[in-house]
């Protein structure tokens, strides 16, 4: 529980750092690097599925308190779908899965989950037009978070 709280705090700091960065020149709401996904991935790999889901839920609650209901819905949908698909890959492929592959799947799922909520909230806006942007930005974000996780992992492992 203490470790989960520490990881949650790390996720919040990563989200804060990301907010300090200039906005991405992408005309799609909600597309970000998703640095806090590093914390979720760590929870998934080293604590378990329940803890990763709990972290995604806590992130959603935090966003609800700081940025309102719409932003919280986006965070929750993206976060939960990302954990669900990453867990499915991990359980299906076990040791054959890779940090990079899971990270990319998580980032793409995060984008799609968020966008699905946008389409539900706003009059069935078509996802079609933005699909290439969502997929490619997800691949790039996944590569970035996996690379960062690789460098941070030795330090994070000391927590466990």
């Amino acid at each position: 529980m203490v470790l989960l709280a520490l990881i949650f705090a790390t996720a919040m700091v990563l989200a804060w750092v990301e907010n300090l960065l200039p906005p991405l020149p992408i005309a799609v709401p909600g597309v970000k690097f998703g640095l806090s996904n590093i914390a979720v991935m760590y929870a998934l790999f080293f604590l378990g599925g329940k803890e990763a889901f709990a972290l995604a839920f806590l992130k959603g609650l935090f966003v609800l308190g700081t940025r309102g209901l719409v932003a919280a819905s986006l965070s929750l949908a993206g976060g939960l779908l990302a954990v669900l698909l990453m867990l499915a890959i991990l359980r299906t492929f076990k040791e054959r899965s890779t940090y990079l592959g899971i990270s990319i799947v998580g980032a793409v799922a995060h984008n799609l989950g968020q966008f699905a909520v946008v389409t539900l909230l706003y009059m069935g806006i078509s996802l079609w037009f933005y699909l290439p942007v969502l997929l490619i930005s997800g691949v790039m974000a996944g590569m970035l978070t996996a690379t960062m996780l690789r460098f941070i992992l030795p330090a994070l492992k000391k927590l466990g």
Partner: peptide, 27 residues
């Protein structure tokens, strides 16, 4: 668990192909 394998290329390739197809169909 390894950081990356050749199968990751397949994943990235598939996602890029879907992107390209959906962009192509739209245009």
């Amino acid at each position: 668990m390894k950081f990356t394998r050749m199968t990751d290329l397949l994943l990235v390739g598939t996602l890029l192909l879907i992107s390209l197809l959906s962009w192509g169909v739209y245009t």
